[in-house]
Design a protein around this nucleic acid. Sequence first.
DNA 1: ACAAATTTAGACACTCTTGTCTAAATCGTC
DNA 2: GACGATTTAGACAAGAGTGTCTAAATTTGT
Lengths: 229, 229
Amino acid sequence: MRLSVSPDTFPPRGHEAKRLSIVDAAAGVFCREGFAGANIDLIAAEAGVSRQTIYNHHGDKEKLFVAVVRDLTERCNAGIFATIATFPDQPKDFEADLIGFAVRLNQNCICNRDGKFLRKLIQTEGERYPELFAEWREQGPGRTWPAMAARFARLAYGGYLAIEDPDVAARQFLGLVNAELQTTFMLGGTPREEEVLQSATNGVRTFLRAFGKRRSAASVEKQSALASA
Amino acid sequence: MRLSVSPDTFPPRGHEAKRLSIVDAAAGVFCREGFAGANIDLIAAEAGVSRQTIYNHHGDKEKLFVAVVRDLTERCNAGIFATIATFPDQPKDFEADLIGFAVRLNQNCICNRDGKFLRKLIQTEGERYPELFAEWREQGPGRTWPAMAARFARLAYGGYLAIEDPDVAARQFLGLVNAELQTTFMLGGTPREEEVLQSATNGVRTFLRAFGKRRSAASVEKQSALASA
DNA sequence: ACAAATTTAGACACTCTTGTCTAAATCGTC
DNA sequence: GACGATTTAGACAAGAGTGTCTAAATTTGT
């Protein structure tokens, strides 16, 4: 295998392009049909590749499945960290900023293709591959939750929130913000944009009722007047 | 088929006993292996029944699956309504009563065998049987959420809570109370009793910070002193 | 104890799927 | 244009699973 000359990321072409389209197609089929129901021929057809190519690349069905989960975990993690980087550290309009963050989290990490797929694979096959999903747990929740909690801790330190336990606050934030989307998520559906916004708005309002530091009504009104101007 | 003489519920014996043990075993196998991976011979073995008997009762694999989901939906619904009936309408110690309710909901409806199974089947096979799960949605969430919301509305009317929208409050209550159990649920695990209690306690505290009507600190202290006496 | 209904074990045809193998075709690169 | 690497199509063996059938055994109600 020859190294590419291009410095770091190279546009997927040839061999690598096949690998990607295989993993992508496999993700879709594994999700729709489950591991047992997934059909290599179907994956090959959806990837626009011959069956033999799949075996050349990945060996067998189980190794292909592992590759799919690893890829999804990596991409989802990247998305989550990228979104956490947009957390409002020094909010102008606190409520609106938190709602924006919640919506971004939903759209870029939970409701997008990778997020839906990874969640479904964890739910359906998690118990069958303990080591694989233990790995996901470390790499995923094990790293993203502390990062989230750190952001809430900073807000508390900055005087914006009155929370005792940043870890609990982070988890409750997500629970609130997704509270109205649970049934849709269960059935594997994708909530419409206005539903996401609605749930996020209601969730953030409740979160701030519980943890927001109350400043005088006047200063709050002044602030939102400024923000909407 | 002859009607039993016993008035309403009769102890499952003979024919009916077989039917039950088949559906029970099938639920377990469908959950572990998925619909495609589920093996009729294995179900027969776990039910202690011959394969032919399964075909006598249910016709084919798909009809058996439908029967499993219908049975689970019915039993889970019964459990949820029974638990909602224990909702604290006139709470003595509000916080403790809500925590108790949340814990009961978890233990009797979400973490028990039927709850786990139904949830997993919805997640894994929901998209494949739209009509079947539309039926679940009507019979399940479509009836239980309004019942929950009605209880919160009554608390608000009784002056215990300051909520605007009882439906939103009900969903947020469940979101908060389960906030710390999500990862465990995802992987199909069963949280330990103290984890359930911890999550419920934290969730209810936050819920009450947001919506609880603040009475004077003295009266609150007097009340909990009375409760713990 | 008898008769009807139900259950059982086993064999069976049929289909579907995985993973391997081969020879031809195509692609990328020099 | 030529060469090596990769991909393709198709055939193939081996295994597993569904659903049917039959005849014998068992259970159930009377």
